[in-house]
Design a binder for these strands. Structure first.
Length: 626
DNA sequence: TTAGGGTTAG
């Protein structure tokens, strides 16, 4: 027995509603809406009695009603009097089931039709395949594949693509490859399905190889590959491919725009981001919620919070993603109060928050030290909104407590977590131990981290720096030795700045830059002015066992300082400077940048590995809590 | 009737 379907998009009847007698009105009404085989039988009898043509009976409705009640023989008897082919009638029904809430009904109906020897055509098979795909039912799919071959449809490109897609989605990689290799013809969809599979498995090189071989690449092929690069953390390649796509004269659509904007966000490529924004406005893509959501993300991650707000404010329609993106963006920029205010507004407007919204809120609280507020959100998300906290929420809570110096509480929180803490959770505790100089708990955190994420250099570096700050040079050396033994290398710090679309990268201590002399001179002038304002080089951040003078030299050639001075030299006065750093910004650079922002009267925006620092008029948007 | 898209913790 098939389950009841309430919403079926079956074709409406064409009939003239005027000039009906009461008697025919009833019949006409029934003609629209008969809901059971018995009503159909009444109608049938009425048509015979009034000598009306049976052809006025809607075949798709007959198929639907009879399929619900297993009255197949009766339906078939009626079909014999109708002009529409029987298979077509059943197909419309299969389509509705396959696309409805219970795709299994399409498969059940198909099985019934088989037993009644109704001959399937390519459409029949396509709808059943659609049902199998939606159910991810590969064994049923295999059966249908068998039918397709038995009925001689193996050269039907459409069906073969559907089968291929089904296998790729259900993990039948070998089946998929077999089908692909055997296909007598392939079209661009065939190639795109194969590329999608490789992208999903993270085999980006294989995906790109197939993409390169794809004949007649469509917008979708390009978009697929661009978003594949973004997904596997290769935004540069994504942008490179996008530029190639433009060169090839292929017009980007909304989906392409979303993928490229995400790449711009990852790279901090504001110039391209703005160009895509303009293009989206011209093409009308900006009205698309997903495009606007990604524009918010792009502006947030490029350090232009105001532009992100403008996009958000201008949106006619907003989803929970739009609100969450804006809240997370404000959190990243240290605007916790504004993030919390936006959350209240969201609730007032009747928008339900989701788990991601709460990650943003907790993030906002931890980055400004709103401990109580954060605790309240954490309980409220479950009690008021029925959201079960995920590992990310626990990570935020540990970060919130650890930053605030509540290290013991953070540790207990981890021990009592109902899910297994991951490396991020222990990493958050370790971060707090660094700030609040707790060696004992740092060692405890590191113990877990060396099991959970033994190849991550960051944790070793933090621990060795904690020892160095405490002048425990032997322990520092021990950690560095452990790193060598395990083959873990410290990620070199680098900073980049983009001028006129060109990305300039600096690594710490770099002296090879063509403008190096200018940079040194400019820096010396700045240091003089900074010292007048009370700047004392914080050599304690140079965690090397070397003499003071040497330490100062190291300090002055931190990558973010080089990038900043280079930016000051090569831009007009008043231009904001945007810098991207792969690691966290160092304490001395932070103090220096605050002073420099006042001295040169510039806004300096630094995006480090987890947040933004916006330096202006001598202070930073993070309010020195980071 | 088949293929691609948005927010998230160290």
């Amino acid at each position: 027995m098939l389950s009841t379907v309430t919403c079926l998009h079956l074709p409406p009847l064409n009939h003239n509603t005027d000039s009906h007698t009461p008697q025919t009105l009833t019949a006409t009404h029934l003609l629209h809406s008969f809901a059971s085989p018995s009503e159909l039988k009444q109608l049938h009898a009425h048509l015979i009695k009034t000598n009306s043509p049976l052809t006025s009976l809607p075949p798709s409705r007959i198929a639907f009603v009879c399929s619900l009640n297993s009255s197949f023989s009766y339906a078939r008897k009626l079909f014999q009097h109708l002009e529409t082919p029987e298979t077509e009638a059943w197909n419309s029904c299969l389509k509705a089931f396959a696309e409805g809430n219970d795709p299994i009904d399409a498969i059940l109906l198909f099985n019934q039709l088989q037993s009644f020897c109704v001959s399937p055509d390519s459409f029949t098979l396509s709808f059943v395949l659609k049902a199998c795909t939606r159910l991810l039912d590969v064994s049923k799919g295999r059966g249908i594949h068998g039918y397709v071959e038995k009925l001689g449809f193996q050269s039907n490109l459409f069906l073969m693509n559907m089968i291929l897609n089904l296998y790729t989605l259900c993990g039948g990689e070998r089946d998929a490859r077999l089908v692909f290799d055997k296909m007598p013809q392939r079209d661009v969809v065939t190639w795109n399905i194969m590329i999608t599979q490789l992208v999903k498995r993270g085999e980006i090189k294989g995906a790109y190889d197939l993409f390169s071989q794809t004949p007649g690449r469509s917008v979708r092929s390009w978009t697929l590959m661009i978003s594949g690069f973004v997904q596997c953390g290769k935004p540069k390649e994504a942008i490179g491919l996008f530029l190639e796509m433009e060169e090839a004269g292929v017009k980007p659509n909304e989906v392409t725009v979303v993928a490229v904007l995400a790449a711009c966000a990852d790279l901090g490529d504001l110039d391209l981001g703005r160009r895509i924004h303009e293009y989206s406005n011209q093409s009308g893509f900006s009205r698309n919620v997903r495009v606007s959501n990604t524009l918010i993300e792009m502006y947030v991650k490029c350090g232009c919070l105001e532009d992100a707000c403008k996009v958000f404010d201008g949106m006619k329609e907003r989803t929970v993603v739009s609100w969450s993106a804006m809240i997370a963006g404000l959190a990243m920029h240290g605007q916790a109060e504004e993030a919390l205010r936006l959350f209240s507004e969201m609730i007032e407007k009747g928008m339900d928050p989701n788990d991601v919204t709460f990650v943003g809120l907790l993030h906002a609280c931890s980055h400004i030290g709103f401990v109580d507020q954060g605790r309240e959100f954490f309980t409220s998300m479950t009690n008021d909104y029925g959201i079960v906290p995920k590992i990310e929420h626990y990570g935020c809570m540990v970060d919130l407590l650890s930053r605030a110096g509540l290290l013991q509480e953070a540790h207990e929180f981890i021990i009592n977590m109902p899910i297994k803490p991951n490396s991020v959770v222990w990493g958050a505790l370790l971060g707090g131990c660094k700030v609040h100089k707790n060696i004992e708990l740092a060692e405890e955190a590191t113990k877990h981290l060396s099991e959970l994420d033994p190849l991550n250099d960051g944790y070793y570096v933090v621990l060795s720096n904690i020892y160095a700050e405490a002048q425990r040079w032997e322990d520092t050396a021990r950690v560095r030795k452990l790193m060598r033994e395990r083959g873990v290398k410290k990620t070199p710090g680098w900073s980049s700045i983009t001028l006129d679309g060109v990305v300039y990268e600096f690594v710490a201590g770099d002296e090879t830059h063509p403008q190096d002399q200018e940079i040194v001179q400019m820096w010396e002038k700045l240091v003089e002015k900074m010292k007048l304002k009370g700047y004392v080089p914080n050599t304690s951040v140079v965690l090397l066992d070397i003499e003071e003078g040497q330490k100062e030299k190291f300090l002055y050639r931190h990558s973010e300082k080089l990038a900043l001075v280079f930016g000051l030299i090569n831009t007009l006065p008043g231009t904001p400077i945007r810098i991207l750093k792969n690691l966290r910004v160092c304490e001395d650079c932070h103090a220096a940048f605050k002073l420099i922002s006042a001295i040169v009267d510039r806004e300096i925006v630094v995006r480090d590995r987890n947040r933004f620092h916006c330096f202006k008029d001598g202070s930073c948007s993070c309010k020195d809590y980071w």
